[in-house]
Design a protein around this nucleic acid. Sequence first.
DNA 1: CGCCGCATTGACGTTCGTCAAGTCTAGTGG
DNA 2: CCACTAGACTTGACGAACGTCAATGCGGCG
Lengths: 238, 238
Amino acid sequence: MTPETIKIACSNCNLRELCMPVGLNPSELERIDEIVATRRKVKRRETLFHNGERFTSLFAIRTGVFKTRVTTEDGRDQVTGFQMAGEIIGLDGIVNDRHTCDAVALEDAEVCVMPFERIEELSREVTALQRHVHQIMSREIVREHGVMLLLGSMRAEERLAAFLLNLVQRLHARGFSASELVLRMTREEIGSYLGLKLETVSRTLSKFVDDGIAEVQQRHVRIVDPDALRRLVNSPAC
Amino acid sequence: MTPETIKIACSNCNLRELCMPVGLNPSELERIDEIVATRRKVKRRETLFHNGERFTSLFAIRTGVFKTRVTTEDGRDQVTGFQMAGEIIGLDGIVNDRHTCDAVALEDAEVCVMPFERIEELSREVTALQRHVHQIMSREIVREHGVMLLLGSMRAEERLAAFLLNLVQRLHARGFSASELVLRMTREEIGSYLGLKLETVSRTLSKFVDDGIAEVQQRHVRIVDPDALRRLVNSPAC
DNA sequence: CGCCGCATTGACGTTCGTCAAGTCTAGTGG
DNA sequence: CCACTAGACTTGACGAACGTCAATGCGGCG
């Protein structure tokens, strides 16, 4: 509730190439540092922002994993994504000046707070930043197209295979193993994201184990046969 | 194949308030006119752009309805949206300089071609335009969140109810009837968008007719009891 | 040590997909 | 002008995939 705030610079942040544009000259780099107003720590299960809250800033994740979810009046909710280090959240708030989803930390996390007014100001002057902002938003749109494809036309096995491949690929890009991962989310949260019930997620994971595709111990997953997963994702639904 | 091109101005376009920012001063308005390079006509079933094509421009729809769709290697495809007058398409292309989906005209259509470089240039100078571009992209992200909720947690009836309400609301905002509409897409296209098979779409429409919620004659739909549709969308899935 | 949340597994039910037959409509050509 | 055709739509019977409900297991934390 009382966010710890520390003033720090992007220019020597090791996540810079993940969340900031590359190829800036020194004077531009200096200006970029102005973007991050503060940092903020978020504890497991706490929300970074929630539906209806006034939008002021985008957030760059430094550590930890978040989920975003939308909710209907009658209490159903849908996980719309899982975000990790270097990724930007809060884009949903721009259009109406209010957030339209919740962002919940799945483990203790820390984010950089980037006031959107400052981003807009600076991106009028630094074209690389302007381009970068556009790309981040476009990337999110393309990602969601992929999720729509998954939800609209894949069966449970394919959905879970795509999910695991995507997760492990993003972790690998951050220096983690290309075959092992620790799920930061529950079966229910995975199910919500994939449009499945938690029992179906559990059963499908068990099937992967039976088929020798993966090893699963609670939240620890080892992908034994990544090609089999890839084949699942790309094969006609038969 | 040979796009007709005509040079025309936004400043006196009757769709301006739909696709351009409001509250510009005269000199800004004049500059905005520079954005639209040309117009382009697209015949029914022809594509405005397609997956893999180099991205250069966004398109503002003047007349006609489009669908956008993504495709997998094995030939499955998913309709990701239906777009109509005043809406902007092509945002998916920004991130990788290539389009990642196809845009197909469902009826003869005309669009304004807006070279993205020009948009970026101008939005560095006209802050209302910068803000507008951000809002358009954010709005698309929020829309897709809604589709994910629909695909991930609604049953067939709810999906179709939400779809019809959304369509009629957008048409109403454009001066058409609030209760009658002509579907420009086939049952199969609706099904693809909603993650259903065409038979299910057809059956569910028939059920709406039986229940006195709507009248359906091929592509002509009259919503008799919009509240019943709203109740369907917002009711717990029981 | 015991509790609680999370996960697994089984039995059964529902919804939607599949397959197939048949209808309607608009467009085409004689 | 009308017969013909192709594509879109409807409807039924059946089956598969996934959801629901319930019992049980497991592990981490106080």
